[in-house]
Design a protein around this nucleic acid. Structure first.
Lengths: 211, 211
DNA sequence: TCAATAGTACCTACCGGTAGGTATAGCAGA
DNA sequence: TCTGCTATACCTACCGGTAGGTACTATTGA
């Protein structure tokens, strides 16, 4: 059973020897991958940061790649679970889409380094890290929004728009918010900001009533 | 004077010996950085792909880092120029924002590998590549949209909304479109799609008139 | 009860290879 | 003469990964 990946250690912490080596390796790897990317991270540095030797790393994960995959699979599972919970909710289409976006944003927020590692692998150079199929996750998320938007169309809540376009616009806004959160130079918009921006999309920007 | 970076060479092309070595190096570097990222790319491979020796690469660019910076500075200049042209336009706020987004999207579209390299460096791991300040570019773009939106507020075209929020929403949607364009697994939305999604933001999603 | 064995979790020392970068002599062309 | 390269050799540092070994615990069978 996987133990939770935490990033509670301060930057220069001495590894806690009571903590299982496997967990320490996962945590150290998240930090090094986060700072240097997969290609720039060395197993030597990860092992040192975890306070174990390289063969111990290979014992637990088999390879550098195995280490990254362990991290990504956990992250993917957490996001998938959050999406399933959020799409099972009742309420207006608007509220459900808002809740879904807040949940996914909150997931990123509570584990920024892991989210950054995953983000960099998903959207980064194809040969820069082991292949990891981002389209499954993207399709799941997009389809969740499309289903909710289709409900909103059926109920008359939404005007006659393409649910695919709604999903792309929502996902774009959320992606912009996530990037501001993940990038250290930007001020995060926060959950309130996510809500405001998605509401802006729902309500529109124009002053005059639409033709 | 910098020569244009082109990526017109087919994947397995023999380097054209009539072309200046410097240009060949820039083009080769874009391709290798695009596939492997900065950290995963080797100067050996870049030089071979360009059909020159490693010392020739160092003769022109001084270092691996110098090579990347040459690419990024050109890309940044092109985007900045496009933004200046687009913001100097007359017209409604809506049309000006639409035109700006289309221009920036079109710039990405006409040089996807360079855009991907820049995108990966700007948003990727802080120590994974030489530092390159993305906030200057982001601020320029955001402020351009904010200024246009402020004009729209003054003229009564836009309702009473935060120009900052409008800029963030627009940028988010455009970022989503750019990512779909840059990532090989996704179908690009195209310029029409950009227009549709930004218009969706302008017009809103809801059916009923706003309260 | 105790020896033998298996399994787990690590260690030290080492492997072959490659990274960015440098030096140098030399050639070709303007 | 100078620029723009080539070819070759080399440097230091580092890369992901492995072989052989140790320590410890739990289990089994005599």
């Amino acid at each position: 059973m996987d133990t939770p990946i935490t990033t509670a250690l301060p930057e220069q912490a001495v590894p806690d020897q009571d903590e299982h080596a496997r967990t320490r390796l996962l945590n150290a790897a998240v930090r090094v991958f986060d700072r240097k990317g997969y290609a720039g991270a060395s197993v030597r540095e990860i092992a040192e940061m975890a306070g174990v030797t390289k063969p111990a790393l290979y014992y637990h994960f088999g390879s550098k790649e195995g280490l990254l995959l362990a991290i990504l699979q956990q992250a993917e599972q957490q996001v998938t679970d959050a999406m399933e919970r959020a799409t099972a909710r009742a309420g207006s289409a608007r509220d459900r889409i808002l809740a879904l976006c807040e949940d996914v944003y909150g997931l990123f927020e509570q584990n920024v380094p892991v989210a950054r590692v995953a983000h960099a692998v998903f959207l980064g150079p194809p040969d820069g890290a082991p292949p990891f199929d981002v389209t499954v996750f993207e399709a799941r998320f997009r389809q969740a929004i499309e289903r909710i938007a289709a409900d909103g169309l059926t109920s008359g809540e939404l005007r006659a728009v393409s649910v695919h376009d709604v999903a792309l616009a929502v996902m774009g806004i959320l992606e912009g918010c996530n990037e501001r959160q993940l990038h250290p130079a930007f001020e995060p918009v926060g959950a309130d900001g996510v809500r405001r921006l998605i509401n802006l999309l729902f309500d529109g920007v124009m002053h005059a009533p639409r033709a």
